[in-house]
């Protein structure tokens, strides 16, 4: 009836993160028993939805930051995404049943060395450039500091250098990007790996097939851990 825009969909849809993370999750996907169709690997393809070796399962590659959103709203039943994105959005409609153990990184506060040396405990307010305003605000609220977040979508390390704000909160993998931009890491907000996430409604109403894939991904992860 109202509002249900029911386009005919595959039984299950999995949202995958485009870009760097995709390369690391593909082997797990394969090991779990899902091979994307050939066109999925064609960078020139304009298609947004792809078939897999399982006729009941479709794939949608989306921006990493959108994976959690697609799953929370039930547009995808399952998703593979970093814990940083999951916690930034804090969607209530998501379960996080499997740690894929990939894409290790951390969300950290960083600043120029001069700024990093100064204590911040006495401040009531900070201006911070970040792609993660919610996690940042919560982290500083715990310290009694109001974080005024300037939301940027990239090149965050530039912000202190160009005087946009003294602090940044960003994902750190090796620390090389920070170093190259003359920043030092001050504190870690969150350690993150990528996860398998499940829409709550799908979990309840398609429990047979969802449980099958949760187990398949879990076993794929355990396999990899054993092999390592």
């Amino acid at each position: 009836m109202s509002g249900s825009s029911s386009i005919r969909r595959k039984h299950l849809t999995i949202a995958l993160p485009k870009g760097r993370l995709l390369q690391s999750v593909l082997p797990i996907l394969q090991k779990a028993g899902l091979t994307p169709e050939d066109e999925f690997f064609d960078s020139k393809s304009r298609r947004l939805e792809f078939d897999t070796s399982d006729p009941n399962v479709g794939l949608i590659p989306v921006k990493p930051f959108d994976v959690a959103t697609f799953v929370a709203f039930g547009s995808a039943d399952l998703g593979l995404v970093g814990a940083d994105v999951i916690h930034e959005f804090g969607y209530e409609e998501i379960y996080i049943p499997v740690d894929l153990g990939l894409g290790h990184c951390r969300l950290s506060v960083a600043a120029t060395p001069e700024v990093a040396d100064q204590p911040i405990g006495h401040l009531s307010h900070l201006r911070i450039a970040t792609k993660y305003p919610n996690l940042t605000r919560n982290f500083f609220a715990q310290k009694g500091i109001q974080a005024e977040c300037v939301k940027l979508n990239g090149a965050i390390e530039l912000a202190p250098k160009l005087g946009l704000c003294p602090y940044i909160v960003d994902i750190v993998t090796t620390g090389n990007t920070l170093k190259a931009n003359g920043l030092v890491e001050m504190e870690t907000i969150l350690e993150a790996t990528s996860r398998l996430i499940v829409n709550r409604n799908s979990f309840k109403t398609k429990s047979d097939s969802i449980n099958h894939w949760i187990t398949a991904f879990r076993e794929a992860v355990d396999d990899k851990a054993d092999a390592a």
Binding site: A83, I94, Y95, I96, P97, V98, D99, T193, R195, V198
Partner: peptide
């Protein structure tokens, strides 16, 4: 509540 096995672990 989130069935977050990593966090439970």
């Amino acid at each position: 509540d989130q069935k977050d096995t990593a966090e439970i672990n």
